[in-house]
Amino acid sequence: KRPMNAFMVWSQIERRKIMEQSPDMHNAEISKRLGKRWKLLKDSDKIPFIREAERLRLKHMADYPDYK
């Protein structure tokens, strides 16, 4: 399994928030909203998620050196 990218790290947190506020919302609608919100997010606000994704990528490389 591939490591999460910055969007996936961010969306995992945000998806939980949306599901708590709107438990009846369909997953497809949540995904659309997350995509739009990520695009509107300032680059500076994305930095912590980019760093976490990089950390996960490096850990994945160390844990699975033969992964292609």
Rank of each mutant, 00 (worst) to 15 (best):
25 M>W: 02
4 M>L: 11
30 I>P: 00
27 N>P: 15
15 R>H: 05
13 I>K: 09
6 A>I: 01
54 E>H: 04
65 P>M: 09
30 I>L: 11
18 I>L: 10
26 H>G: 11
64 Y>D: 14
67 Y>N: 14
12 Q>S: 10
22 S>H: 13
26 H>V: 12
2 R>P: 03
53 A>F: 01
26 H>K: 15
13 I>Q: 10
24 D>C: 06
25 M>D: 05
61 M>K: 13
34 L>R: 00
30 I>T: 02
23 P>T: 03
22 S>E: 13
58 L>Q: 14
68 K>V: 05
40 L>D: 15
3 P>R: 10
8 M>P: 00
10 W>L: 00
66 D>T: 08
62 A>P: 10
18 I>Q: 00
6 A>E: 02
49 F>W: 09
11 S>G: 04
27 N>D: 15
59 K>Q: 14
55 R>M: 08
35 G>I: 15
24 D>M: 08
34 L>W: 02
10 W>Q: 00
4 M>R: 01
16 R>N: 07
15 R>N: 02
16 R>E: 10
58 L>V: 12
49 F>P: 00
35 G>F: 14
50 I>E: 13
12 Q>D: 15
32 K>L: 11
19 M>Q: 11
41 L>W: 00
58 L>T: 11
47 I>W: 07
30 I>H: 00
40 L>Y: 06
52 E>K: 03
50 I>M: 10
53 A>Y: 06
47 I>N: 06
38 W>P: 02
50 I>S: 06
20 E>K: 04
41 L>Q: 01
33 R>Y: 08
18 I>C: 07
20 E>R: 05
50 I>F: 13
42 K>C: 07
60 H>I: 05
40 L>W: 04
46 K>L: 02
49 F>Y: 12
28 A>S: 13
25 M>K: 08
50 I>K: 05
64 Y>R: 14
16 R>D: 08
52 E>N: 00
4 M>N: 07
34 L>T: 00
66 D>Q: 07
41 L>C: 00
4 M>Q: 05
35 G>V: 15
1 K>N: 08
17 K>I: 09
9 V>N: 03
30 I>Q: 02
9 V>C: 07
9 V>F: 04
22 S>P: 02
58 L>I: 10
54 E>S: 05
32 K>W: 07
39 K>M: 10
31 S>F: 08
67 Y>S: 14
60 H>D: 13
46 K>T: 02
19 M>C: 09
9 V>H: 02
21 Q>N: 05
23 P>W: 01
23 P>H: 03
35 G>A: 15
59 K>M: 12
8 M>L: 11
5 N>Y: 04
46 K>A: 00
6 A>C: 02
12 Q>V: 04
27 N>A: 13
3 P>T: 12
39 K>S: 13
48 P>V: 06
21 Q>T: 11
46 K>P: 00
46 K>M: 01
33 R>I: 12
33 R>C: 14
67 Y>V: 15
37 R>A: 15
56 L>C: 05
25 M>S: 05
5 N>H: 03
60 H>N: 11
60 H>E: 14
52 E>Y: 02
1 K>P: 03
46 K>E: 01
55 R>V: 07
52 E>H: 02
39 K>I: 05
64 Y>F: 10
27 N>E: 15
37 R>T: 12
44 S>W: 05
23 P>Q: 04
67 Y>H: 06
13 I>A: 12
37 R>F: 02
44 S>L: 04
62 A>D: 14
65 P>Y: 10
2 R>E: 05
68 K>G: 12
36 K>G: 05
10 W>E: 00
12 Q>R: 07
39 K>E: 14
57 R>K: 05
60 H>M: 11
13 I>H: 14
27 N>R: 11
42 K>S: 15
30 I>R: 00
2 R>M: 11
35 G>M: 15
60 H>S: 14
54 E>C: 05
9 V>Q: 02
42 K>L: 05
52 E>V: 03
43 D>T: 10
37 R>L: 05
33 R>F: 15
32 K>Q: 14
63 D>W: 09
36 K>C: 04
17 K>W: 01
19 M>K: 13
66 D>A: 09
16 R>M: 08
54 E>A: 06
23 P>Y: 01
66 D>G: 11
56 L>S: 07
24 D>Q: 11
6 A>W: 00
50 I>L: 09
13 I>N: 09
65 P>D: 15
67 Y>C: 12
10 W>P: 02
21 Q>R: 07
65 P>R: 09
57 R>N: 04
55 R>A: 11
41 L>V: 03
30 I>G: 01
33 R>N: 15
39 K>C: 06
5 N>C: 09
67 Y>K: 15
42 K>V: 05
57 R>L: 06
48 P>I: 11
55 R>K: 11
62 A>Q: 10
53 A>M: 03
8 M>Q: 15
41 L>S: 01
12 Q>F: 04
21 Q>V: 09
54 E>G: 03
46 K>Q: 02
64 Y>S: 14
32 K>M: 14
50 I>C: 03
61 M>R: 10
4 M>C: 02
47 I>F: 08
27 N>C: 09
4 M>E: 08
40 L>P: 00
23 P>A: 03
23 P>L: 03
68 K>A: 04
43 D>R: 05
15 R>E: 05
52 E>C: 05
12 Q>G: 07
20 E>G: 06
36 K>S: 11
41 L>G: 00
39 K>A: 15
48 P>C: 04
68 K>Y: 10
24 D>A: 08
9 V>S: 01
30 I>C: 07
31 S>Q: 12
19 M>W: 06
55 R>P: 04
40 L>R: 11
55 R>Y: 04
45 D>A: 08
1 K>W: 06
50 I>N: 07
13 I>S: 09
21 Q>M: 07
36 K>Q: 15
37 R>M: 12
68 K>R: 12
46 K>N: 00
50 I>V: 14
43 D>S: 08
41 L>T: 01
50 I>P: 01
44 S>Q: 12
2 R>D: 12
67 Y>G: 15
32 K>G: 05
1 K>E: 06
32 K>V: 11
34 L>P: 00
59 K>Y: 07
28 A>G: 09
29 E>N: 02
33 R>E: 15
15 R>F: 04
66 D>H: 10
65 P>C: 08
40 L>M: 13
57 R>A: 14
66 D>L: 10
32 K>N: 10
35 G>W: 15
64 Y>I: 11
63 D>E: 14
56 L>N: 08
3 P>V: 10
2 R>N: 10
17 K>T: 05
17 K>R: 07
30 I>A: 03
44 S>F: 04
67 Y>E: 15
4 M>W: 10
54 E>T: 07
46 K>V: 01
31 S>V: 13
19 M>R: 08
28 A>R: 10
33 R>P: 00
31 S>Y: 07
36 K>A: 13
38 W>Y: 03
26 H>P: 15
12 Q>E: 14
32 K>P: 04
30 I>W: 01
26 H>N: 15
21 Q>F: 05
